[in-house]
Write a protein that binds this DNA or RNA. Sequence first.
DNA 1: ATAATAGTGTCTCTAAGACATTATATT
DNA 2: AATATAATGTCTTAGAGACACTATTAT
Lengths: 234, 234
Amino acid sequence: MNESDFIASYDPSAFERPSVTVDLVLLTIRDRSLQVLLVERTEHPFIHQFALPGSFVPMDETLDEAAQRVLRDKAGMPPTFLEQLYTFGDVKRDPRMRVISVAYFALLPHSALGHIDPDHRDLATVNFTDGGAGVFTNDGVRLTLPFDHGQIVATAVDRLRAKLDWSDVAFALLPQEFTLRELQEVHEVILGRPLNKPAFRTRMLGTGRLEPTGRQESGHRFRPAELYRLKVTQ
Amino acid sequence: MNESDFIASYDPSAFERPSVTVDLVLLTIRDRSLQVLLVERTEHPFIHQFALPGSFVPMDETLDEAAQRVLRDKAGMPPTFLEQLYTFGDVKRDPRMRVISVAYFALLPHSALGHIDPDHRDLATVNFTDGGAGVFTNDGVRLTLPFDHGQIVATAVDRLRAKLDWSDVAFALLPQEFTLRELQEVHEVILGRPLNKPAFRTRMLGTGRLEPTGRQESGHRFRPAELYRLKVTQ
DNA sequence: ATAATAGTGTCTCTAAGACATTATATT
DNA sequence: AATATAATGTCTTAGAGACACTATTAT
């Protein structure tokens, strides 16, 4: 039997197979705190509880495509930072059956989330505090997420911190034009500690990746700062 | 219908599902070059070609357990560094059917690989060169790996380099006791460039993670160096 | 003795933190 | 004028690279 005969005669149903899903951790920054997008589940199991948005992976979609679709459908988002995070495959992580979840990790400036209607309760932003990576409602109540979604969120925050210094994740949380103060604030929220202003400025401008726009911010009652943008794919 | 009724009545065969495999990238260092473990495929497709060792994920094994089993069965290895790398899910990456592969990434000192019988052609170590992450046989012939295994190997080397400075990956490539020269050599092979000896020594000893054993190496025709070990989970 | 590496000391350069000073907008 | 932050300069400290020097082993 040659290879093409083998493939033609191969029976894909010979072995039992797990289901595969993608789950999305969409992080943003609001009011000097990290926030994660949750949606209320409309089906069993864990119906009416808040969980990460997700979807089963159909046979004709790559994992990246499935994640992009979830970002579009459940969050209604424009293109932004999206990368694969980690794959969670514990045998009993879903009470229905064996489900392997490929988690994805997205970032968006809070301004881009504004158009989502909070009255539909489709979107629950929650405060994120460090020291164990707990998830809280805006009223300060601690949430226990269904499945292993708490662990998935914690993994995403670890990844965000690890990538802060050498990647563009901070810029994905800001609008296209931003001040150095806003950029420093993003870094401080992610790291959970204050940073030295002159050193931060020198380091950021020293990367050569920032470009002054010539414009300034306005609307504050103090000296306006220069607006910068990220240079395109240098 | 309550939740337990729902779960009991859930039909897992309602949707078509992909197959899930784990594939293992086992890296080691020999003769001042990175090497990756390949096995000759005994089945279609790509029969008799060398590829990464792997296995389908059965319903009762976690992903980590499946990867450990592959490491044990196909490589016959003692416990070592093993972590999840990335999940590859292109629709046509396997000509048979939809297969999603969770790649794992293992490290082992070359001395621990010695007992594998190369006459069985079950093990083909290949040279790894940078600048595109090519895989070569020991005779210098470039190999094109089946499936997307070339891309998986490249991803593993990227990960290895990224983790070199802040994790224990270098020690996973060395025996329990090693000299600072051997440790520096591991770093140099992974980075592909020479390092400054005094600075390297100061930096390594400054981490406080190295412990002198009081013993020295022997067998060389030059001054023997102190043997160190990695401190346990400080 | 010679060869080859171990291990250390010195000098320089760069980057970051701490602190202070001026500059400039809104109210 | 008062206020809050922008933007910059100075000083100090920590770490790494370059280079050189001595120390120690096998042959």
